[in-house]
């Protein structure tokens, strides 16, 4: 442990309640067909959706198409959004996944038609990582950057710094109990986000 201590003010450790409230406000507005809210939803989740599309498809043009399709589908299908089945972000991840799968299937189809003269099933272009793994990764990265700075810092030390909670406490000067509760809370928030999205797959 040679790096300098990271001092974290305890006051910075709050739960992201405001973020949740904002999501609920956006969900309500969408259901009411409020177009300003639709623009705000695009601002909030546009980068996440576009990053998911870019990473799964690997093609800038196709990714832009998918991003556009996701938001068009969200606007046109807003009547089918059920807040009780999960938050807006998870619903958007679900739509993104379907659009990505469609785009990949269309690719497969194009490859097949190109080789349809051959009787054997042609070799088909497929993706390396599973779309779900990529979606999870982008979702977690997006949620991480929205955590309160101190909580994000603690998780970053645990995830990437490979520090134990005891070491994080020494390093940050925070009480061990605080480190523990925030590591746990942060991880459970991320976990909930991933699981909410997976329910929509």
């Amino acid at each position: 442990m040679s790096a300098t201590p990271v001092k974290v003010p305890a006051s910075a450790l709050y739960a992201p309640v405001e973020e949740t409230r904002e999501s609920e406000r956006l969900a309500q507005g969408l259901l009411l067909g409020d177009e300003q809210v639709f623009a705000a939803i695009y601002r909030r989740w546009g980068a996440m959706v576009h990053t998911m599309a870019t990473r799964t498809l690997g093609d800038a043009k196709e990714a832009e198409d998918v991003t556009q399709q996701v938001f068009l589908a969200a606007w046109r299908g807003r009547a089918g959004f059920r807040p009780e089945r999960g938050p807006l972000g998870a619903w958007l991840v679900g739509i993104t996944r379907r659009k990505v799968v469609d785009a990949l299937a269309a690719r497969t189809r194009r490859a097949r038609i190109a080789g349809a003269a051959a009787a054997e099933m042609p070799a088909v272009e497929r993706w390396e990582a599973t779309p779900e793994a990529v979606l999870d990764r982008v979702l977690v990265a997006d949620e991480l950057r929205r955590l309160p700075p101190a909580q994000r810092e603690i998780l970053a030390l645990a995830f990437y710094g490979d520090l134990t909670q005891v070491q994080i406490a020494q390093r940050t000067g925070l009480p061990l109990g605080t480190v523990k509760s925030h590591a746990r809370r942060g991880m459970h928030l991320l976990r909930r986000r991933v699981e909410e999205a997976r329910l929509r797959y």
């Binding site: 999870d136 990764r137 977690v140 990265a141 991480l144 995830f159 990437y160 991880m187 991933v194």
Partner: peptide
């Protein structure tokens, strides 16, 4: 699963 996703994403 969360840790894996976070670590594969990078800081």
């Amino acid at each position: 699963a969360v840790v894996r996703a976070a670590r594969s994403a990078g800081p």
